[in-house]
Computed example of a mutant assay.
Amino acid sequence: MINLARVPWSEVRCVLLDMDGTLLDLKFDDVFFRQVVPKAFAEKNSLTFEEAYARVFAAYSENQGTLAWYDLDYWSDRLGLDIPLLKEEVAHLIRVHPHVLPFLEAVRASGRPAHLVTNAHGHSLRMKLARTPIGAWLDSTITSHEIGWAKEQPPFWPLLQARLDFDPAATLLVDDAESVLAAAADFGIAHLRQALNPSSGAPPKPSGRFPALMDFRDLGFPPRDQE
C-alpha cells in the first residue's frame, strides 16, 4: 500500500525540489542514456547495438551514485562522444510532469522559498530551464556540481545548508531517488516525499520507506500567504 501522506504545511518553511523524475519527466533521460548514447557509441566504434549497450552500461555502473555519473563532460571524454550535442536529438521529450506548475505557483503564493536541488550537469540544467517554465517559480537552482558532491553523498547536505541557510526540521524535500532521500534523512531533513512516477515511459516505482506521491496533488497545496 502506498503511503500518500500530505505535507503538514504549517511545519514547512523551505521547499527543496529535485528536477529529473520529480518536476520533469524522466523519459527524456531514460531514452537518451538507454538508446541514444549506446546507438552513437555503436556507430562510432563499429559495434552492434547490443555490444555497445553492454560496454556503455558497464561504464555507467562504475560511476553510479557519484558526481561523475551526472557529469556530461566526463561522459564525453569517457565515451568519445559529444554528449551535450547528442541530447539535442531527443530534446522534444523534455516535459514538465502534470500538476507541477500549479504546485510551484501555490508554493510561491504561500511565501515559502522553493529551491531546485539537482544532480544534473550545468548543461542539462540550462537546456531544461530553457525548454520549460519551471524556472520562473524557483528562488534558486543549485547543482551538485557546484557543491562538489552528489546528493546521495553525505557531505552534500551540510554544504547545501551553508548555501541556503535552511532549518532541516522545517524543510520539505521531494525527490524520486530513495538513496537521495535516505542521505537527506540522515542529515535531519524532516519532511521527505518520494515521487513514484518519475517517467511516463515506465510503470510507477514501488513505494519504499518514505511517504510518496504519484503526482503533486498528493502533497496538498500550501495555503496562500495572508500577509
Rank of each mutant, 00 (worst) to 15 (best):
Q64R: 12
Y60F: 15
D73M: 01
Y60Q: 12
D77I: 08
Y60I: 12
L79D: 08
Y74N: 04
D82C: 09
F57I: 04
Y70S: 03
L85W: 10
L85S: 15
I83G: 08
D71W: 02
G65T: 07
L81K: 12
S61L: 07
Y70R: 01
A68E: 08
Y70E: 04
G80R: 11
L86F: 13
Y70L: 03
D73I: 03
W75V: 02
S61P: 05
V56Q: 09
S76R: 02
D77E: 15
D77T: 13
L67Q: 04
N63P: 04
L81T: 11
D73V: 00
W69S: 01
L67P: 01
N63V: 10
I83Q: 04
L79E: 11
A59C: 13
F57D: 05
T66R: 15
E62R: 15
W75N: 00
L72C: 00
D77Y: 09
W75A: 05
W69Q: 01
A54V: 11
A68V: 06
W75F: 04
W75I: 02
L81H: 15
E62M: 13
L79Y: 10
Q64I: 13
A59I: 06
D82L: 10
D71T: 03
L79P: 05
Y74R: 06
A59F: 10
R78D: 06
W69A: 05
G65V: 06
D73A: 06
G80M: 13
S61D: 14
R78S: 09
N63T: 13
A58Q: 08
L81F: 15
F57G: 00
A68S: 12
E62D: 10
Q64Y: 12
S76D: 00
L85C: 11
R78Q: 12
W75R: 00
I83T: 04
D77R: 15
V56S: 08
S61C: 01
A68T: 04
W75C: 02
S61G: 07
V56P: 09
G65L: 08
I83P: 13
E62I: 11
D71L: 01
Y74D: 04
F57E: 12
D82Q: 10
L67H: 02
L72R: 03
P84R: 00
G65W: 06
P84I: 02
D82N: 14
